[in-house]
Design a protein around this nucleic acid. Sequence first.
DNA 1: GTCTATATTTGGATAGAC
DNA 2: GTCTATCCAAATATAGAC
Lengths: 202, 202
Amino acid sequence: MSVATVPRNRRAERYEATRREILDAAWELVRANGLDSLAMRDLGARVGMRAQSLYVYFASKDAIFDAMFGESNRELLRRLTALGAVADPAEGVRRNARTFLDFCIEDPVRYQLLFQRTIPNFEPSREAYAPALRILDNARAALSACGITDARAFDAWTAVTGGLAAQQNANEPGGDRWVRLTDDIVDMYLAYYRPVTGGETT
Amino acid sequence: MSVATVPRNRRAERYEATRREILDAAWELVRANGLDSLAMRDLGARVGMRAQSLYVYFASKDAIFDAMFGESNRELLRRLTALGAVADPAEGVRRNARTFLDFCIEDPVRYQLLFQRTIPNFEPSREAYAPALRILDNARAALSACGITDARAFDAWTAVTGGLAAQQNANEPGGDRWVRLTDDIVDMYLAYYRPVTGGETT
DNA sequence: GTCTATATTTGGATAGAC
DNA sequence: GTCTATCCAAATATAGAC
């Protein structure tokens, strides 16, 4: 249990801190002006640099979006895995849905970046995208605990939960007109797709 | 029953025909290259004009998008009203959903224009948007015939149908992995939201 | 009604000095 | 690692001749 096995590297630390600062500024700007109008000039100004200096920290504008995409995905995955186990599998599904939807509506711009893919030419890297797969696995596991394992049923799940988020952000960002229906929608879904034998057994 | 009460105006007809030509070319271009990369230069070239000459027919690029938005909305409304009456109200709901979803997936770019609102700064005019309200009324009427009149239930309806379209176009444009679930989703929805007394009575 | 010419804006990115 | 100086490209839109 050594206290400091890894020698600190002040240069690298400073570099990382600056990257972090740039990303934070980027989030502020896109929340204020929209995803598509993030400009390197503005971003530089926000952190007290010229646009050109940003290229020391990020290879391109898309690399900045990619970092934002990646950290958002990791955050959602973190929240979902933090939920832990519950006795009632239906409650597990409900919590999964609520967590997902809270995440989607608390920052519409982040939602747009992750799920709408509206930035011209931007394609997330495999690394940034990876957590999304585990997020889906997480939902699949929650449904599986309810005895729902069918692939079509899972597609129906992504459609109904995604639909709530989409309607909310498109028609009433910041409100709760659609997301407050989450529990109803989960009830409706489980009533239809849960096998009558019920249950989490194999 | 006069045959030609309105005198033809060859000049105006030519003008309208050219506008139509420009819009058709715009549709071709956005389907090929994406909504956001529609450029006046390219559009001009497509119809054999310089970009500048397009301004004789449309005041701005947004005016072109607005015309596209309007005609798409009118087309969807036309299809929905053409459905007419059915004996079984549940079948009416199903047809409404199928018609809507077919429309959404047959042209993902049109879907994006109407429902994703991803073009920077573009806001449809009131006139172009108007049919959307009647499209919603149409769905409300179909559900109402099933005894579903609650506002929350209607929001749930737009979420589940919209969710199918969104998932399909986002994850598998051109495919049917999600839209083929339409009838299941309608069954699920009606099973949950239809009052047990059932029925189309007043 | 179409053209040429041009204004204007915007924004990503590189080279090289310090 | 930050700067100045540029480059380059793309696009919308206007003015005015023909």
